[in-house]
Amino acid sequence: MQLVAETRDSARITAVALKAYARIVEAWALSLKEAAALADMSESTWKRARKPDFSGDLTKDQLLRLSAVVGIYKSLELYFSDPLARTWITRPNTGPLFGGARPLDSAIEGGLPQILAIRTYLDALRGGA
């Protein structure tokens, strides 16, 4: 019985994470390739995953990535006004984490550790640290 409940919970978490991520991808106007790479998925998997009836599983890494991206999105929405909140991730940035690259490219290249570093960076900006 417990395994069935855990499976349902896992499926719900996956569905909610993918729905939120799809909305963020749309808000940020990311390409299919960028969205898939940021989530550490193939483009074909991302095409399937963004549909409401997706029944696949995500790895722990993928779920952590999606969670961190939601945190990044939230921080940007709180810290900046539009249109900067929606375009910050795709604009070249001279900040210490990016060296002139787009935060998106930095996140894709650096994987989960860089995505988490970006989230921490934005949380510190928001908190005044």
Rank of each mutant, 00 (worst) to 15 (best):
S106M: 08
Q62L: 04
V69N: 05
I13A: 15
A15Q: 10
A124D: 11
T120Y: 11
L112R: 10
L63D: 09
V69Y: 12
A11F: 03
L63V: 05
S55H: 07
Q2D: 14
P103E: 02
D105F: 00
I115H: 04
I24W: 01
A27L: 12
G56F: 00
L84A: 11
Y73L: 02
V70K: 13
L116Q: 11
L58I: 07
A107V: 04
Y121L: 03
A129K: 12
T90H: 06
P92D: 06
R48V: 00
L18D: 03
S55I: 04
A36C: 05
D105E: 15
D123M: 09
L84F: 13
W46G: 02
L97A: 11
S55E: 01
L84I: 13
F54G: 04
T87Q: 14
Y121R: 12
E6D: 13
A22P: 01
L58W: 13
R48C: 01
L30E: 08
L18F: 01
I115A: 06
L63T: 02
A124V: 00
T87R: 10
R102Y: 04
R126V: 08
L78T: 12
A101N: 13
S55G: 14
N93E: 10
L66A: 02
A107I: 02
D61C: 10
R91N: 10
